[in-house]
Amino acid sequence: MKVGWLEVTVATLFLTLVLGAVWTRGRNWLDPEFWKRYAIIGSAIMFIALIILTFDTLAKTKIGSDRVPSPTVINYKIDYKYDPEKGYFKPVIGPEKELLFGKEYSEEEAMELIVKGKLVIQSRACMDCHTLLGNGAYYAPDLTKAWLDPKWEKVMIAATQSKTKEEAMVKFLMHPDKYATWTRRMPNLDIDEEEAKAVVAYLKWMAAINTNGFPDHFGESKLVKF
């Protein structure tokens, strides 16, 4: 049997009700002890359910899993397409290669880059201006699919006089004050080239995570025409 959300929901509620009823048998419902026992049962069951779900979720979202891919995806072309079967937008990885900074990264090298990228992102508290996977602050754009943002190709490559998207991103991250595109500028966070490259790799990798369709129809805008 496949266990989905409905089974989990029904099972936890059912167990709480039944086990609680057994343990409080014969007690008046106005007796505080009645509710104490129900509180213990209910909390314990929900907590156990959370633990089980946590193990399952962690197994399904390991780096290298179907949902959270291996860092070597930075060697491939990444796209974001509507999946009619799932009913939501999903990253499409490859099959064609698309090298980052003209280099093919081994598993180990790619992992090193991702670790570095994450450290840079935390050290500058990017999440207190931006959202990543939709969590953080609301002062600056969501970065979940920043790698796929059409503005890099349409505007920023030319603005930064770069040849590739990744070069434009590195230049922007190193000098966001210089390449600002509106009055609310990103400050210069003293990011060096090595750090900027790691961040770009991180953003490319993050764009390949299956986020159940968030953000919906990314890049298909009725508001913005380049």
């Binding site: 754009p141 509106w182 129809h217 890049g219």
Partner: peptide
């Protein structure tokens, strides 16, 4: 940003 727009950098700015 999210419904009419496509949740991008420029949609955010708009």
């Amino acid at each position: 940003e999210r419904a009419i727009g496509g949740a991008t950098w420029q949609d955010y700015i708009m």
